[in-house]
Simulated scan of single mutants.
Amino acid sequence: MLLPLAGPMPRTSSRVRALTAAAAAALLALPLTGCADFSDQDRSRQAGPFSSVPERGGPGQDQPPPPDTEETDPPKGPCVDPNPAVIATCLGTTGGVRPADPAGKTTYVAERRTGKIIISKRYGPQREVAAVPVDGGGDGGLIDFELSPTYLQDQMIYALITTGEDNRIVRIAPGNSVKPILTGIPKGATGNMGSISFVSPSELRVATGNAGNPGAANDPSSLAGKIFSIDPDAPAPRPTMIAAGFGSNVALCPDPLSGTLFVADSGPAGDRLQQVEAGGLRLLWSWADRPGVTGCAVTEGVISVSIASKFRIDSLTAPTNANPTVSEPQASDVKEQFGAVGRMSTFGAAAQIATINKSVPGAPPTTTNDRVAIFAGSASAEDRT
């Protein structure tokens, strides 16, 4: 079942993108304190919004200098990876990943099972900048996260997490104070992996898995297997439905240049890459053999889709008005270089990729797993002219 969009998908503002990149240095300075438990989250939900959050759009602060990304001589130790594309090592099983500087040499990445958000660059330093209690069983845990679009003012991080009762959207304030924003997203033994992405400061886009229940994805009363948006600052945000019918491992991949939204998932009919349009969803490509898509990213007109179980990344030329179909995927074998790749995120002409070798059978037993690396894409997407 396809649910029509309320209107065309807005393009992420340049201000949102600039503030997100600039926040990397501020993340390095976040204090490390203890975590709240789930009962604290539920109590805080009844207490109303944080009183200390500045009003969005208020006066800006001086931007901190960009993080130091100069390479140093390789240190010695078990977490030094010889692959020059690798920028973070010795991580737990990863969830979402985001570039932390415009050049993509610094990253912040979620450890899905521990609930930690780590910031790192090649050869360090590596720091925990936030932590939230999660249920990391199955494919749940700290699934994805986003910095607030006004992070330099409010220092908030938003996350899609799994608890003992549900999947939910939470807001993490300095000091690891966790406040539920939207609760009650169905949780299952599998099918919890989803994705979040800011469209604007007042619109957070959310994609959810079907929680192991294909019927829930087409049930309008369920938040499973859907794409919807919420205003994260509303006292009780009400989801605005965008599309339905998704399977597991749902990954959003917005095109940073055009604003077009693509989504990859593993559905009952096979693994798919779809485009979100004003009238619903348009199927662009399907993998009938169901290899298991795990992430996607768009870089300069090329859509890259990670397929962890096959240790490859498939690249397709994105559709245009002149050529509305995608190219046949061009496969990049990444087993030897990276292993099993999960989530991906765009920066410039490349993408950051997070490996999930610790959770994929047959993955290379690299001592520096799990890792974040830079993926420049296949040599070229197929020329359709």
Score class of each variant (00 low, 15 high):
I172D: 01
I185Q: 03
I242H: 13
R238D: 13
E146M: 14
E300T: 09
V250G: 08
V298F: 13
Q155H: 15
A217N: 06
P186W: 03
D37N: 14
I172A: 01
S202L: 09
A100R: 08
E277T: 15
G58T: 08
T94H: 00
P319D: 02
T366G: 02
A278Q: 10
R384L: 15
P66N: 03
R98F: 10
P74C: 04
A217R: 08
P214V: 06
T294F: 13
V250P: 03
E165V: 03
I242N: 11
A243C: 02
G377V: 04
P324Q: 03
P8D: 13
R205W: 15
T69A: 12
D383Q: 12
G92W: 06
I374N: 07
F38P: 05
R127P: 09
R56F: 04
A264T: 15
M193F: 07
A85W: 08
D81W: 08
G188S: 02
I313C: 01
V293Q: 11
A350Q: 13
F262M: 08
P329T: 05
Q61Y: 06
F311R: 00
F198C: 04
V341C: 07
S202C: 04
T366F: 15
F38R: 12
R371Q: 14
G104R: 12
E203V: 13
V263W: 12
V298T: 11
I313T: 05
V263T: 11
D333R: 10
I143T: 12
A373K: 01
L19H: 14
S195N: 07
F38Y: 12
V334N: 10
R11W: 07
D370W: 00
A234D: 11
D139F: 01
L147V: 13
A88Y: 03
G342E: 07
G377C: 07
S51W: 10
S378D: 02
T89E: 01
T72Q: 11
L283Q: 13
I169H: 08
P84E: 14
S52P: 00
V305N: 12
I353L: 11
A350N: 06
P256I: 12
L160M: 14
N210I: 00
V341I: 15
Q41N: 05
S345G: 00
Q126H: 00
P133A: 15
T208E: 02
P64D: 03
G212H: 01
R122W: 02
G267P: 04
R282C: 06
S148T: 10
R17F: 04
C90F: 06
G124H: 03
S52D: 13
S13A: 06
G7E: 12
W287P: 10
L3P: 00
S332C: 09
E111M: 05
N167L: 04
A6Y: 01
A22G: 06
T93I: 06
R113L: 10
E71S: 10
D271E: 04
S120Y: 01
E70P: 00
R15S: 08
G95R: 06
K335R: 15
A100T: 07
T385V: 11
G209V: 05
V134C: 10
A100F: 02
G115C: 06
T240L: 15
A173H: 06
P174R: 09
E382G: 02
P232K: 09
Q126P: 01
E328T: 14
S304T: 05
G292S: 03
A318L: 03
D68W: 05
P237E: 07
T355R: 02
